[in-house]
Amino acid sequence: MNQEVMSSKTSVQHTTTRSKSNATQGAEMRKPREAPPCAPQTVALLTPLGTLRLDACENGVHAIRILMDVAPAERNDEAPPRCRVVNGGPAERIPEMRRCVEWLQAYFGDRHSTGSLPPPPAFHHPALRADTFTSRVLHTLFNNIKIGETVSYKRLAEMAGNPAAARAVGGAVRRNPIPLIIPCHRVIWSSGQSGPYMSGRGDRLKQWLLAHERTTDTRRTPIVSKSPSSIERVVDRTADPRPNEAQADRYTK
């Protein structure tokens, strides 16, 4: 009798173990497989700003890095500045990389091509895919502030949904992984002063970019102040720089 009871208990234990094992295997099978990590490749581009390094994968552009290896070139409308690949190789064949190169070549080209830029590449940097204030600021800047236009930190904070976050906007701009295409150089003080760029190392570069865009944008219209509820592309030129905006410029890209 005792042997029968022990045999029955053993059978139940084996059945329970098999059930747990099957459940575990089923859960593992149902678990979605993670996408393989990106393998960004790099292209070097010689521009009027010096060398740019572009990082991109098949899904989109990860970063544009301004190396600051030379001073910005003199603008000459009769001879548009050159923008050419100096170190590409297989990376040039990545579709989103090609789109990034073509966009930058048009941006640094003559005024006609700059006035009608090709579609920008897709973005694939984690900071731009996350649901964060930084991502919202950068997408708002990209979607709304066009060539020949500028916006203050305060106004950009309003447009991004947090009027009190001018300083946080400065931090978001500092973390911009794709400058030029996401135009952090167009974020200025409320007074109209350009403010620092790249922690003060790129002040001349920022002024060059703003002057380049004023020269090349033939569609530009006067910029006027709008009400806070508006989401027009504007710059507030009436107010003095606020302390939080000055602090924000410490973080400017």
Rank of each mutant, 00 (worst) to 15 (best):
L128H: 07
A157G: 04
G148D: 09
E158M: 13
D131T: 09
A122F: 05
S135V: 02
R111S: 14
Y107S: 02
L117E: 10
K154A: 13
I147D: 12
D110R: 02
R129C: 07
P119C: 03
S152R: 00
H112Y: 13
K154G: 11
F108L: 07
F133P: 08
A160H: 06
T114V: 06
R129G: 07
N143A: 15
G109V: 06
L128I: 09
P120I: 07
T134E: 05
P121I: 02
V151T: 15
F108C: 06
I145Y: 03
T150L: 14
T114N: 14
S135W: 01
L141F: 11
A157N: 04
F123G: 03
A164Q: 12
F133E: 12
L138P: 03
S116M: 01
E158W: 08
N144D: 10
S113W: 04
D131R: 08
S116Q: 04
L117V: 12
R129S: 10
E149L: 14
V151N: 05
L138I: 04
H124I: 01
I145D: 04
P119I: 04
A130M: 11
S116G: 01
N162Y: 12
P126W: 01
I147Y: 05
K146R: 15
S152N: 03
I145H: 03
R129Q: 15
P126D: 05
M159P: 05
N143H: 14
A106S: 15
P119W: 04
A166Q: 06
H125E: 04
N144P: 00
F142V: 08
R155S: 13
S135I: 02
T114I: 01
A166D: 08
R129D: 07
V151S: 07
M159F: 10
G161D: 08
V137W: 03
A166W: 02
D131F: 01
A164M: 10
E149R: 15
G148Q: 10
Y107I: 04
S113G: 10
G115A: 12
T114Y: 05
R136C: 00
H112M: 11
A160L: 10
K146T: 14
A164N: 13
S116D: 07
M159Y: 09
S113D: 11
K154C: 07
N143K: 14
V151M: 07
A130L: 09
F142D: 13
G161N: 06
A160D: 09
P119Y: 03
H125P: 12
R136V: 00
T132Q: 06
L141P: 11
L128W: 07
A127N: 09
I145A: 05
L156V: 08
S113C: 13
L156F: 03
A165K: 00
P126G: 03
G161W: 10
G115P: 06
F108M: 07
H112W: 11
A165Y: 02
A166M: 06
P163Y: 13
T114S: 13
F108S: 05
T132K: 04
Y153T: 12
K146Y: 11
T150S: 13
A157L: 03
T140W: 01
K154R: 15
A157Q: 02
A106E: 07
P126Q: 01
F142L: 11
N144Y: 10
A127I: 14
R111D: 10
T150I: 11
G161Y: 09
H139E: 06
V151L: 08
A122K: 11
E149P: 00
L128M: 08
T134W: 00
F142W: 12
G148S: 13
